[in-house]
Simulated assay, not measured.
Amino acid sequence: MSEQETFETYPDGMRDLIASRRRRRAGLVYHEGEALPPLDADLDALATRLVPDEDPAPLPPGHSSFARKRHELLPEFRGKPELCLLNALLIANLRKFTWPEQAPELFLRLWREKAGLLLEHLSSRWLISSIITYAEHGPTEADRRVGQSMNVLFSLMKLYEYERQYSGTPSEEPFRIPGRAKGPLPMNMLGFQIVGGDLEANLLLDIVEQALDAPDAGPLATALMDRLNRDSRNIFRRFALMRLRLEMMRVNRDETA
C-alpha cells in the first residue's frame, strides 16, 4: 500500500469537520437596540428604499457580531434595495445554529412576495446562498431536497472550478482532446463516454425535476439552472464543447476513410 493510500485528508476523520462547523456556526450576538425586522415588516418600503451608495461609517468599539456582519455586507449592496441586504442578513443568521425567532418565516416571506425583485437585483452568488438556505429552512420536504441538491452541486462546482484555475487554462476553454492523463479516478470510479454519455445531463435533470416539485424554492432553483445553462465558464459547457469537437473529429475521419 502506497504512502498516499495510507494518508488521510482529515487526520481525525469526520470528527474534525463536525467540531469545525460547530465553532463557525455560533449564533450572531445582538446588542440592545439591534434586531432584524419583525415578521410583518413592510416589504414594499424595503423594496423601494435603497442602501446608501457610500462607504459605511466605522464601527464603534465593542460592537456586536451582528453589527460587524451588517457592516461587512453593506458595500456589496450599495445602491440596491434594502430588501436585498435584509435577505443577506437573514441568510447570515440562518446559517448559524441559533437565530432570531422570526428569521426563517421572514426569509420565506421575502421569497414568496418579492422573488421577482430579488432575482432582478441579486448576483448569482447571493441567489446560490438563498437556494442553499432552503436546504435547512424550506417549508416542505421538496423545498429542502432541492436546496440540498443545489448546495452539493454548486459547492462541488466551486471547489473544482477554483482548483482548475491552477491548471492555467481559462474557465471557458475546454481541455485538449488528445493527451488525457491515464489513471484511475478517485475511489476507482469508472470514467464515462463524453460522446454518448449522459452522466452530467442526468445530474442536472434530477435537480430540474426536484425544482418542479418544490412549491417555494422551485422558481429560484429554476432561475439558477437557467443561469448555469447560459454561463460559459463551467464544466457542463466545456463537456458540451468537447462533445462537439469529438463528433466533428469522427465525421472528418469517416469522410476521409
Rank of each mutant, 00 (worst) to 15 (best):
M225H: 12
A57Q: 03
P139G: 06
M248T: 10
V146C: 13
L36G: 10
D226R: 14
G197Y: 09
A103N: 07
I194R: 07
I207Y: 05
S64N: 06
T140S: 12
D213A: 15
S232Y: 04
I194M: 06
T222V: 13
P178M: 08
R233P: 00
V251R: 10
P81W: 00
R227L: 13
N93Q: 13
F66M: 01
G168T: 01
D206I: 08
D16N: 13
P81G: 00
A41H: 09
D213V: 05
L43G: 02
L117R: 11
P38Y: 01
W126L: 05
W126P: 01
T256Y: 11
A88I: 03
L212V: 02
L190T: 13
R22C: 01
Q4D: 12
R176I: 02
G218F: 07
A115V: 01
A26K: 14
F107H: 10
G218N: 08
F77V: 01
E163I: 14
I18Y: 13
E200I: 11
A47S: 14
S171D: 12
S123G: 10
R23K: 09
D254K: 10
V152D: 09
I235W: 06
L43K: 01
A217V: 07
A35F: 01
M242A: 14
R238T: 04
D42L: 00
E209K: 12
T98F: 05
E173P: 04
R125T: 14
P81E: 00
A257K: 14
E76L: 15
L246N: 01
D53P: 03
E247Y: 08
S129M: 08
Q102K: 04
I131L: 10
A135S: 10
M150I: 08
R145W: 11
H63D: 04
E120G: 04
N151G: 06
G33D: 03
L185C: 11
N202P: 06
L89E: 12
D213E: 15
A35H: 07
P170A: 05
A142Q: 12
L199A: 15
K69Q: 11
L224D: 06
D40P: 09
F107L: 11
R253V: 04
